[in-house]
Design a protein around this nucleic acid. Sequence first.
DNA 1: CCCATTTAGTTGCGCTCGCAACTATTGTGA
DNA 2: TCACAATAGTTGCGAGCGCAACTAAATGGG
Lengths: 155, 155
Amino acid sequence: MSRTDEKTNWLNKTEMAAWISFIETIGDLQYSLDSDLRESSDMTSGDYQVLVYLSESPDRRTRMCDLAAQLNLTPSGLTRRLDGLVKEGSVTREVSNEDRRVQLAVLTPQGYRKLVAAAPLHVASVRHRFIDRLTTEQMKHLAAAFTSIREGLSE
Amino acid sequence: MSRTDEKTNWLNKTEMAAWISFIETIGDLQYSLDSDLRESSDMTSGDYQVLVYLSESPDRRTRMCDLAAQLNLTPSGLTRRLDGLVKEGSVTREVSNEDRRVQLAVLTPQGYRKLVAAAPLHVASVRHRFIDRLTTEQMKHLAAAFTSIREGLSE
DNA sequence: CCCATTTAGTTGCGCTCGCAACTATTGTGA
DNA sequence: TCACAATAGTTGCGAGCGCAACTAAATGGG
């Protein structure tokens, strides 16, 4: 990283303002969105992500490893998260008949109904907390900025 | 997703692009910054925040409750986080002589040295992952956008 | 065809942190 | 003054998740 400890390139005013506004906001924003989802639909945003991804997958099922990659979870983390969804009946596990190592996470009708009920409320929350605070121009700038950051991360 | 609910105000293309770019980026970004800090200075970003805040406080000490509010931690969460910092010698606890209920978290010389060593490397990481990916104009737009979002959260 | 390697997933363990209950101290109203 | 409320902090417990070790199944080089 930095090889010269003597002269650090500290952030200037503009850089600091961007950085501070970002880190001081994302925690509260995520907390608010999570609280909204918990209150309106009794689920965590993690569970919501699982249901969304499964609902968009062919036959409403995916391999565990694909799901883990999509959700940025380790295999063990995904196993535990699915345990909860299986117990409440939103998801079932099926062994793939093409590859007996893989478990398919399958969205149940009950899980789909839960997602359908939760989605409009979640969208309203995202609007209230995020979208409604931004102009169209700001949304376009923001999308460009974060896309740029994300591309930098994957080098 | 649900096409049967006509009352829901789903996100349009611009809104969706802003939202997706945001949520798909912040997880990876935080993970990268945390990994950098762990590798360069053997500390978590949570511990780093504590040291920064203490170093900027009068006499390098603060009341636990003020620290908890600043870091968005519950009292119990802060107690546990300080436990680690106390054990490694970066922070000590002192009972306030004005109010004997309050514990003061005090930054030790060793903790201060650790922060001074870590800060340039952390700034370099923030530059590499965040600042360097943005133009000056993007930084200004981003600061305005997140300030607006944060103000919305605190109503 | 076989055995080493790779891949998928689960489990034990540890870490972080929130909630509820608890102690200790300070503030307040009759 | 005294009882009760408010405030500061710690602890037991449990949820969520990463790491390392493990089993089981597929794959590939000889």
